[in-house]
Design a protein around this nucleic acid. Structure first.
Lengths: 348, 348
DNA sequence: CGTTAGCACTCTAACTCTCTGAGTGCTAAC
DNA sequence: GTTAGCACTCAGAGAGTTAGAGTGCTAACG
């Protein structure tokens, strides 16, 4: 693999990304930084095809990059674009500040990504694994009906209605409230294991069996908290993209099959996955560019873009990187900051 | 319009629905209950075309029903199928019971419709317009941070975090809690107008200006409650339907243009709308079969099916009707029933 | 030896032409 | 009023043609 072949591979990818048509030797030879004839390029392209970096849709057509070709291009060949300062500023404005609720932060990131890349954006929320329960309340709201309210230090709020077999006396409710307050306050979301819950069910049942639905309710809420939610925005962009199979896209939009797991199992750093390489997330000619953002140094969620494989990587990757970094820093030490934030939230 | 012409029209629709091909005079003449020659049928079909019930894609093709033809067929000619008892049972199982949350109920209905009809299903949630606010709480959860909790008699629960400029004293919080409790308890969701909210903002501000974010929060929550949400499920079925224009379907899936209003403005009872007749909801050859379900006798939401105009009306309409009726009865007197329901909710 | 010009070759996509068969409308007989 | 018969029409399928883009190979070149 000499220098020139790599240069030609890069040129083919760039041209293909630009035009969407299979690239011929002639069009490459016309490029500025290429100073050999089309015949030479033909020889090199034939070699690149042999090596598995390019392929021909049919004999008399130009060449198109293969997975392997894209991979090499992304990993070694392309030179990422710089994001202009004013665009960075625009993005910063779109995202919000330290006071912006985390959920909104990632939603804004998704919107920004869709606008910038004209692809679908995918984000997961920040699972508040390390934040702690700051408040649990049980509120009677009807006959034998109680609402449990769970609030975490990171500002997540969850509620759930529970029906008991009997109405609770004032005293019983007091007991329960005190009990959970004592046992759950300060516990991190991650620590709310099933085991812990089982113990609580046992302890509470010893006092009064019919309280256990409440504990179960809390258990479910804590599961909800740990649940990573996945949002895909701008998925309509995928439909207007003719290299993608409409049927597959619609199925994906409806079910988002396998994407969660794929994101969860991803490594740190930016990653590019191709649809057809992966059977869990399988839109034929698609490409997924994702990265994990961090909160207080720990991986909290993912953010990225789904587009056709023929997407402008050298432009998009820097944006995904910038957003990841920005979101991470906005979430960092978020707990304290939100609580001690300056008075610029609801009213100026 | 003699008897025979109507019979022929019905036969043409049935055949066209069955085969998807324009129907010729010969194939009609072969049908069991038709005992005239193809020539006679040709004459009648020409007449039906003149009257606007049939049309020819081109001169040498068979005939296809027009809007007008379908209308007449649906309103007068078809004999709806009966739903077998065991299918009814299956549907009942899929839907859930009186204890199933309303939201889940309509989602299940959508799933059932998609499965049965192989078309896209569309449902709206039950807006709790006539249910009343049964509880409003304001819970301090951090520095200047308060969570508002709103619960309705129909069991909807909404919450929202608000940040104030100052922390409230115990007395101030008490004042506010009492004030809203007095003013909102028993008010129906529909009555929570902006005007009413404006009055409250004024009244509360008179006591303490910085309380107004809380009122605003409540206002937003009540808007959330009134929001009718539209869900389309199984929209992939529309794409695999070749009489529909893919582009139009894609646009519809993206924006669901006009469908909300169309559903909201619909009359009671089952209704069939054709895409091209209606400019707000415009997938060319599509047909929308909807019906409004009721809750305690009042229209609460809609449920139905979108498919090609060539759908098996005599089969589908009974299903939409049955589901409507079933959902209505499951939601009926839900308030009291849930409160007085037998003890089969959380534990057996 | 790598590079290049030239040329024959291949293959798709678009276009035309032809043919077939389903279905019609009309007419005349029943 | 109904039917058989017949000439007519037209979309769609299939075959053949052409144009153009791109290739691989060979022989010449520096």
């Amino acid at each position: 693999m000499d220098e020139r072949k790599l240069k030609i591979l890069a040129a083919v990818v760039d041209e293909y990304v630009r035009t969407g048509e299979p690239v011929g030797s002639k069009s490459i030879s016309k490029l500025e930084n290429i100073n050999v004839s089309s015949a030479t390029i033909r020889n090199d392209m034939a070699a690149l095809e042999q090596l598995g970096y390019l392929e021909q849709p049919h004999t008399s057509a130009g060449r198109v990059p293969t997975f392997k070709g894209y991979r090499l291009y992304i990993d070694e060949l392309m030179t990422p674009h710089d994001i202009p300062e004013e665009e960075k500023k625009m993005i910063d404005d779109m995202l919000g500040d330290k006071d912006t609720p985390e959920e909104l932060l990632v939603q804004n990131a998704a919107t920004a990504l869709t606008e910038i890349t004209h692809c679908a954006a995918v984000v997961t929320n920040a699972v508040p694994r390390f934040s702690v329960i700051s408040k649990v309340e049980v509120i009677p709201t009807g006959k034998r009906l109680y609402v449990i309210l769970l609030i975490t230090s990171s500002g997540n709020i969850k509620n759930k209605a529970c029906r008991l077999e009997f109405d609770l006396s004032h005293e019983q409710l007091d007991f329960f409230t005190h009990y959970i307050e004592e046992n759950l306050s300060g516990v991190s979301v991650d620590e709310l294991s099933e085991e812990m819950m089982d113990n609580m069910v046992a302890a509470v049942s010893a006092y009064m069996v019919s309280l256990s639905p409440l504990v179960k309710g809390i258990c479910e809420l804590s599961e909800d908290l740990r649940q990573q939610e996945l949002t895909v925005s701008g998925s309509e962009k995928l439909l207007s993209c003719d290299e993608l199979d409409k049927m597959e896209v619609v199925k994906f939009i409806e079910h988002k099959d396998g994407l969660s797991e794929l994101l969860e199992n991803a490594f740190s750093g930016i990653q590019v996955k191709f649809g057809a390489e992966n059977d869990s997330f399988a839109i034929g000619n698609s490409s997924l560019i994702v990265s994990k953002y961090r909160k207080d140094g720990k991986e909290a969620g993912s953010l990225g873009v789904i587009g056709p494989m023929r997407v402008d990587y050298k432009k998009i990757i820097p944006y995904v990187e910038y957003l990841t970094q920005r979101i991470s820093s906005l979430m960092d030490s978020g707990d304290d900051d939100i609580i001690n934030a300056p008075d610029n939230l609801q009213e100026p």
